[in-house]
């Protein structure tokens, strides 16, 4: 599995020299399983625009897995070049609400007056799916989706290519309301999804001090993300959904406080690539 970060920022795009190293585009992560012609993209923030611009013409199928429909996670969707490529098979997966299917929810954004093009007028071969809660198959990947703690219907994803496992919990506040954190696995949102993953991409928007002023906003502190990752026994934590007010130097300073001997912790960086060889993943599972 090869994972590339196209957008790492939370809430709001933050272009500029102060965010050049970690990036200012909002959530978008490319996942390649090795299946010829198929790619998976996690969320469609502004990062998906650059991803689409360089996408190979040999790609015949794209699966876009949306975690939820907050604007920073779908704002790039209408600008994704793949939607305008005739014949390209595009599958969009994400949570419906209790009253509306995903397609109807997306149409609220992808229709006038907010957007000039309607979903039904796109030239690609588009299919919109309410993501099933549980495990399903995509080309070269087994995907598990589960609802997680964040305002409004929000899912986390676990992707397994048979050799390595990636978990994506971009917007997640498992500590909300917990009398102790982390709690027992049964009472910890996202625990089963993340358990023993080779890499966990997890919400780490705030410092611990900032979190105290943002209870219930649906995000975690870096410290909570580390505690969650250690609890779930993951191999590597990639802090994600950086706060728009945290520039590169601030992120460096914050992450230097959270070095943990029990696992590798890094802030997600736009353009960075994660990759595991079959042997590396197997060695980790044997430990």
């Amino acid at each position: 599995m090869i994972v590339r970060f196209w957008g790492t920022r939370g809430s709001l795009p933050t272009p500029g020299s102060a965010t050049q190293r970690y990036g200012g585009n909002t959530s978008c992560v490319e996942v390649r399983s090795g299946e010829p012609g198929a790619m998976v993209v996690l969320d469609a923030g502004t990062g998906i625009c650059a991803f689409g611009a360089q996408m190979s013409s040999s790609v015949s199928r794209i699966d876009i897995l949306l975690s939820h429909l907050h604007m920073d996670h779908i704002i790039g969707l209408g600008f994704f070049a793949g939607l305008f490529r005739p014949g390209l098979e595009v599958h969009i997966w994400g949570p419906g609400s209790t009253v509306l299917p995903l397609r109807a929810r997306l149409t609220r954004y992808l229709s006038p007056p907010l957007f000039p093009v309607r979903l039904r007028d796109l030239p690609c071969r588009l299919a919109v799916h309410d993501v099933p809660l549980g495990t399903f198959e995509l080309p070269g990947l087994q995907v598990t989706a589960a609802l997680v703690c964040h305002p409004g219907p929000t899912v986390g994803y676990r992707l397994d290519d048979g050799h390595s496992t990636l978990v994506y919990l971009s917007d997640h506040e498992p500590a909300l309301g917990a009398r102790r954190f982390p709690d027992l696995p049964r009472w910890t949102s996202g625990f089963d999804l993340a358990a023993k993953a080779d890499a966990l991409i997890h919400d780490a928007q705030y410092s611990d001090a900032e979190y105290e002023h943002h209870l219930g906003w649906g995000h975690s502190s870096i410290g909570q993300a580390v505690a969650f990752a250690v609890h779930a026994g993951v191999g590597q934590l990639v802090g994600f959904h950086h706060d728009p007010w945290h520039d590169d130097d601030t992120l460096d300073a914050l992450y230097s406080e959270y070095a943990d001997p029990r696992l590798r912790v890094t802030p997600a960086r736009e353009g960075a690539v994660l990759a595991w060889s079959v042997n590396e993943a197997a060695a980790r599972r044997d430990r």
């Binding site: 609802l147 703690c149 309301g177 949102s189 089963d192």
Partner: peptide, 17 residues
């Protein structure tokens, strides 16, 4: 096994009421 998030949130609400 982790409980469904709605159940987790219900427990958390209950623990505060």
């Amino acid at each position: 096994m982790t409980a469904d998030v709605e159940v987790i949130l219900m427990k958390q609400v209950a623990s505060y009421l």
